[in-house]
């Protein structure tokens, strides 16, 4: 057996090679993070989630109003104004106002006028959305912010 048949001696990983691998690994993580970041948009091509409802005096106590293009339900009572989302908490269908409360056309969930689940597969009550005021005093609704049920906004 000739000595050449022995495996070549290979030096241990040098500092250089570790440094190279390290920076590349770091850059790879950075590139991957960037790619994932790209997939989460800053803005959506749809009207803003926070929108103007109207002036407070447009909603005197006793008002009940459905805003279909925003899928919301506005109730005004002496305690204040509240906005309930009409999106079913089960799988996202739009519930329809019925005699007493709301019916979901998709899987038969039923809600009372305050959004509490009466029957059906819906896991939780309809969402109450945050009502606030803009600087010019008009009422704003933010479809992205949920508040506790029975939170009434008083200006």
């Amino acid at each position: 057996m000739s000595e050449r048949l022995k495996p070549d001696p290979v030096p241990r990983r040098s500092f250089l090679s570790i440094a190279g691998l390290g920076t590349l690994a770091l850059a790879g993580v950075g590139a991957l993070a960037g790619m994932v970041r790209l997939l989460k948009p800053y803005v959506y091509p749809e009207p803003m989630a926070r929108f103007r409802l109207g002036r407070p005096d447009e909603f005197p106590p006793g008002t009940v109003k459905v805003v279909p293009e925003r899928s919301i339900y506005v109730i005004s009572e002496p305690e204040g104004v509240a906005v309930i989302s009409l999106v079913c908490t089960h799988l996202g269908c739009i519930v329809a106002p019925a005699d007493k409360g709301f019916d979901c056309p998709c899987h038969g969930s039923r809600f009372d006028p305050k959004g509490r689940v009466l029957r059906g597969p819906a896991p939780r009550a309809l969402l109450w959305l945050e009502v606030s005021q803009a600087a010019d005093g008009s009422l704003m609704v933010d479809a992205n912010r949920e508040v506790k049920p029975n939170t009434w906004y008083r200006g």
């Binding site: 790209l38 948009p41 800053y42 803005v43």
Partner: peptide, 10 residues
């Protein structure tokens, strides 16, 4: 245009 202006890293 949106890729240019608002897509993260777009």
């Amino acid at each position: 245009k949106d890729i240019h202006y608002v897509v993260p890293l777009g």
